[in-house]
Design a protein around this nucleic acid. Sequence first.
RNA 1: GGCUCCAUGGUCAAGCGGUUAAGACAUCGCCCUUUCACGGCGGUAACAGGGGUUCAAAUCCCCUUGGAGUCACCA
Length: 485
Amino acid sequence: MERVRTRFAPSPTGRMHVGNLRTALYAYLIAKHEGGDFLLRIEDTDQERFMEGALEIIYRTLEHAGLEHDEGPDKDKGYGPYVQSERQAKGIYLEYAKKLIEKGEAYYCFCDKERLESLKQVVAGKEIAIYDKHCLHLSKEEVQQKLDAGVPYVIRQNVPNEGTTKFEDEIYGTIEVPNAELDDMILIKSDGFPTYNFANVVDDHLMEITHVVRGNEYLSSAPKYNRLYNAFGWKVPVYVHCPLITDEEHKKLSKRSGHSSYEDLLDQGFLPEAIVNYVALLGWCPADNREIFTLKELVEAFDYHHMSKSPAVFDMNKLRWMNGEYMKAMDPDKFYELALPYIRKTITRELDFRKIAEMVRTRIEVFPDIAELIDFFEAVPEYDVSMYTHKKMKTTGESSLQVLREVLPLLEKQEDYSNDALYELLVNFAKEHEYKNGYVMWPIRTAASGKQMTPAGATEIMEILGKEETLSRLRAAIEKLENEN
RNA sequence: GGCUCCAUGGUCAAGCGGUUAAGACAUCGCCCUUUCACGGCGGUAACAGGGGUUCAAAUCCCCUUGGAGUCACCA
């Protein structure tokens, strides 16, 4: 059996879209599942859209996500160069385009912008244009004459107006399109660069790609590529078109949604593993319905025949949940290391950050959630005394004031401010006075934090705060209750 | 608008002619509990509609409807 080779072929135009990331992931998984090769090819044929630094983003993202390529611009295994601008400099594309011209499958076109413009028509608010094969009928001599005169030209594919063209997709089955729908697309642009459509076919063949994995948006133009393969007499690769990823409005994910790129997601505090895991499940489901996978496990389990055809909504909620799962499962040291910068951002005093990190861990889904959970450690926020009233705990402002007054001297005497010692002290206190635990703990926690919800119980908070700070907070609370009740 | 694709709960999705139509997220309730969370248990919630084919249809076919994609010297 031939060795499986897939490729990821992004163009360096900016951050990596999550749709592209998933395409890359699937391409990677298909190759690795079969022990094959995953290559990276840079499609920089559009000089206008080229963005400085975009190349670095591509490398960084792939590495970060764990999608290590076996071949690419930085790892030439004999199929290079792997950058299309370098390949075009070698004349590869023009050479193949000329072969097509000889076969009558392509032709020179000298039409200028104005003429092309006149071909456009507006349908349903959208501009559409189908080339009218105007230059197809130029004689050899006329063509040569224009070429000699240096008239700018492009090379177009020649698609007949009659008949249909079909191709096979692994996911979608047979797709057949009337040839009249297939525009005579440009293969070589007037600047000498190939278009994506053409460069793709040539490079995939030359690089011996066996499975072409790409987004669903290419589905309707795929027959054109098939014609190219056939015209060259090349073996058509296996097509795997991935279903679209959409936003909540069921539209193609766009930059406006704010989470359209991998790096947007990182900025929002998501873990690479969680993003990769989540995105893998958008359009694919393992036989056993499992949801949490490492990349390695995905390689093992991935079978592209189980991919779905319909578009999938990118659900932030579920990503957040999954991210939370990864956090809970994370090694404590690693979690601490990752959480520390976020903790430091809101707490400037020196506290036991390790303990704080562990407190926060099961309560957050994403790192930025940390801030509002722990801000009270820095300073007690303004709060209303009504917070002392809790019907389940049976506490009121008065009862709280009383409990705080009773408990204060005990806490002043107490030297051991560890959680266990404090807990024992307070539970015993409650027992002696025949109070319910919550009746005592609620006011203390409120006094110590000024918050309705905290990432831990009263005594854990006191432990972190330490004796001095705890006492000063309790005294302030007593004063507050005296004044406002 | 032409062409192409798609159609199971709010979302991701199992399902490949016979199921009480899974599971997960979200949501709601209960339990646990020094609050919240975690965890545990449970609830609400779906085969777009209409025709066929068949003993039997969420599953196969057709139509309708709805949605999406695409129609560049962008990829």
